[in-house]
Design a protein around this nucleic acid. Sequence first.
DNA 1: ATTTAACCTGAAGTCAGGTATAGGTTAAAA
DNA 2: TTTTAACCTATACCTGACTTCAGGTTAAAT
Lengths: 145, 145
Amino acid sequence: MYTIGQISSMFHLPVSTLRYYDKEGLFPNMERRSGIRAFSEKEVEALHMIECLKKTGMEIRDIKEFMLWCQQGPATYEKRRNMLLQQKKAVEAEIRRMNQVLDMVTYKCWYYEQAIADGNEERLQSMTLDKMPENIRHAYENGHK
Amino acid sequence: MYTIGQISSMFHLPVSTLRYYDKEGLFPNMERRSGIRAFSEKEVEALHMIECLKKTGMEIRDIKEFMLWCQQGPATYEKRRNMLLQQKKAVEAEIRRMNQVLDMVTYKCWYYEQAIADGNEERLQSMTLDKMPENIRHAYENGHK
DNA sequence: ATTTAACCTGAAGTCAGGTATAGGTTAAAA
DNA sequence: TTTTAACCTATACCTGACTTCAGGTTAAAT
């Protein structure tokens, strides 16, 4: 059993955040000893899962639902898997989006390198795709899809 | 010259958002005709850049600074390039982070597939790395780095 | 026994990035 | 000409995820 302060230093999370998570229902049925929160291994495990789900961009209210299912045993395995599959898809989509953004900003960086070299943007303004270096044209096209 | 309504439909952005951007200084020196905003090609170009920078996760106040530099001609090319290089690094870091998160959630999905197949988590609880399929072990290890 | 550290609650505050509302002006269409 | 649509400002409100504050309790150390 751990106190909120111990958990706070274990996870490098402020005490206020842990209390907030508790208030939001992320630790259903956590024990209390004369009013004081007692974090067991179950809550430690829960917190690892919470950190994972947060990193995928899941909202607190959805994490709450997941943690509730975790209390309900094998009957909710499928629900939990489905939620995770959905988050996996969301993460994959986000990675695709970020790669596109990377191409866009790669092009912009190249643009300003050229502008610095030229001292102006005139050549760049009238530049056509076929005059760009291949990798830059590729980044440009992918970034503007 | 375009009205705010025309720009709104061109960019699929609410009129209120464009006014908010203007208030935040994202269109320095935009013209007015008897009090009404007149978006020129310069503002259209600016808005494309704003959308790009927003996608990289840049905050409004930093975008404001960038757009101010754009008003100041070739003297600020280097500042602009440096800011873009910094954003590029930020995007690359975010992609690395998201790939790690993807590995983590890939492992969790596998975990629940197994739990569904087994009907419980007993086998999983006592599972060691060497008993996992290679790709899953890889995902697990990378996701927990 | 008392001080101090760590815990508790409820309510209010913070921040970013908008969105909504109320009340008023401009300009295009009927 | 009058109505209606699109514009304007200022201010208030919203959401999510916390953080801070005021005031009070518990438990550990001296």
